[in-house]
Design a binder for these strands. Structure first.
Length: 424
RNA sequence: GGGCAAGUAGUCAAGUGGCCAACGACAACAGACUGUAAAUCUGUUCUCUUCGGAGUUCGGUGGUUCGAAUCCAUCCUUGCCCA
């Protein structure tokens, strides 16, 4: 199966330029994707582009990961209804470094293989370019009419927020990236999210007009959730790839909690399982949806891919212990509790516990809930459990006899948010 | 520089002198039901609280008034039109 056919049945192709398939069949092709340095870690929204590069490399082509040191200074207006804040250079450098380290984990940059991945920073070439040169050599080839016809621009012109010249120019800047890579790295292909289509075609247009060259592109659909929510966001914010920002346990839980409909879609996109294996899983899911076989497989594959086997196993173990219906608190050993990586831990004074303290102060002081008022409301709503027992009374006293192994108290806020309080 | 319009909670958006911590929608969180789903129903969502209340809000500042999101002045920001 060709790369494009493979990506197609996985549901990873939205738009594609004619001739792309022929180009990929003809020779080893270098293809690039740009990553936005708006944070010092990639989050799961960037996972699809990463996987596109991985697929590209597996099919024997050369992936190029571009980090946007220059474009990050301008700000991509695509999908944004308002003008963006610009990043200062120091933050930018910090973010670039973090992203670089992560990308190195998923792509093979070993220089020995003929299709080793490349990493480039577009600031390296933009640093040298002067404004006048740019508007003469690049701006001359693209008409304003062409630029205004882009969706990302049109929407902003129709909206009430306006658009600065800076953001308007963005597509030219990104377009130039493609041109530069075409000229200097023999890059013939650009990929990205479908929101990038406008920027990508500007690049291809530039290559055509300036060099008479041919460039290709395809985009993948932007992920949505079946309930219309934003993909990759939870109540705790983004799901990051960096284990210091999102623990492997939380990462595992995110995928495990996918809606059935989403899980079936996502498992094709995010795992490398074969078509047969996936269809098999879907059949099993239909037979017994409560088993959530797809979610479990999805969570397993991804946690291993991002964090490794060991982290997956400990996330799975923590999950089993926290959620197993039969497991009473007594079955949790001290080691079990201690090893629960990823659930939030906080400390509480042992002396105060011995004296006894009301739940409300306890919840507020451990930071599990932000204030006493909220702690009270949450208890009245029935949303707090201590050592698995629901707290019904706001007067409830917390004291040292609740300590498990004379050391820990397990607090639940809602069904899925666990906190381990350690007496110290 | 001139004319017009707008700025209200996470977002959208009502409110045009007291009944306003501010209708509603969305979103989010929690509960029930379930499969750690979805859908549905219920509660909560400015901050703090000893649950009695208290404090700070409607772009900023100043004013009128017993009383201002609401009236006036001024400044800031944004959009549209003209130069």
């Amino acid at each position: 199966m060709s790369l494009l056919d493979e990506l197609k049945w996985r549901g990873m192709i939205q738009d594609i330029m004619p001739g792309t398939a022929e180009q990929l069949a003809k020779e080893m092709t270098a293809g690039y994707i740009g990553f936005d340095p708006t944070a010092d870690s990639l989050h799961i929204g960037s996972l699809v582009p990463i996987l596109l590069l991985v697929h590209l490399q597996r099919a024997g082509h050369r992936p190029i990961a571009l980090v946007g040191g220059a474009t990050g200074m301008v700000g991509d207006p695509s999908g944004k209804s308002e003008e963006r804040n610009l990043l200062d250079e120091q933050t930018l450098q910090h973010n670039l470094k973090g992203i670089r380290i992560q990308l190195e984990k998923y792509l093979d940059f070993g220089s020995s293989s003929p299709n080793a991945a490349l990493m480039v920073n577009n600031y390296d070439w933009f640093r040298e370019i002067h404004f006048l040169d740019f508007i003469r050599d690049v701006g001359k080839h693209i008409t304003v009419n062409y630029m205004m016809a882009k969706d990302s621009v049109k929407k902003r012109l129709e909206g009430s927020g306006g658009m600065s010249f800076t953001e308007f120019s963005y597509q030219l800047v990104q377009g130039y990236d493609f041109y530069w890579l075409y000229k200097n790295r023999q890059c013939r292909l650009q990929m990205g999210g479908s929101d990038q289509w406008g920027n990508i075609t500007t690049g291809a247009e530039l290559i055509r007009r300036k060099e008479g060259g041919e460039a290709f592109a395809f985009t993948c659909p932007l992920l949505t959730k079946s309930d219309g929510g934003k993909f990759g966001k939870t109540e705790k914010g983004n799901i990051w790839l960096d284990p210091r920002k999102t623990s492997p346990y939380q990462f595992y839980q995110f995928w495990l909690n996918a809606a059935d409909e989403d899980a079936a879609k996502w498992i094709r996109i995010f795992t490398f399982l074969s078509r047969g294996e996936i269809e098999d899983l879907i059949r099993q899911q239909e037979k017994n949806p409560a088993e959530r076989i797809i979610q479990k497989t999805l969570a397993r594959e991804l946690t291993i891919f991002i964090h490794g086997q060991a982290e997956y196993e400990s996330a799975l173990e923590t999950t089993a212990k926290l959620f197993s219906a039969s497991g009473s608190m007594e079955t949790l050993s001290e080691e079990d509790l201690h090893a629960m990586e990823g659930i939030v831990k906080s400390a509480f004074s042992r002396n105060r516990l011995q004296a006894g303290v009301d739940v409300i102060s306890f919840l507020a002081d451990t930071g599990i809930l932000p204030s006493k008022g909220e702690a009270r409301k949450m208890i009245q709503n029935g949303g707090v459990r201590i050592n698995r027992g629901k707290i019904e009374d706001v007067q409830f006293q917390v004291d040292s006899h609740l300590l498990l192994h004379d050391k820990y108290i397990l607090v639940q806020k809602g069904k899925k948010n666990f906190y381990l309080v350690e007496a110290g």
